[in-house]
Amino acid sequence: MSFLSNFFKSSESSSDIAKNRLKVAITSDRAVCSPELMEQMKNDIIDVISKYLDIDTDGLDIKVTKTELDDSSGTVNALLANIPIKEDSRNFRRRI
């Protein structure tokens, strides 16, 4: 049975699962604020930007990661926000 369940399992291996889980855990460990604060900040950012642009809130990704400094003298924590803007954004503005 275990052989069959292995066979039909999703293609993601347990090492991939481990790697992805770790990336998420470590990202929030490195974050200056807790996951709850992160969520609040994310909602605030959505509120502010939504005033001006029609953004795709589902595709929105905000995280704290380690980034290499420009002169490669070390790494710093950086807030990365990937905020997709919907196609009909211009019409949206006109509507306001």
């Binding site: 291996s13 347990s14 090492s15 991939d16 481990a18 790697k19």
Partner: peptide
């Protein structure tokens, strides 16, 4: 087997 992270991972 994909059941342990590699050193590269």
């Amino acid at each position: 087997e994909g059941n342990m992270m590699s050193s590269d991972d």
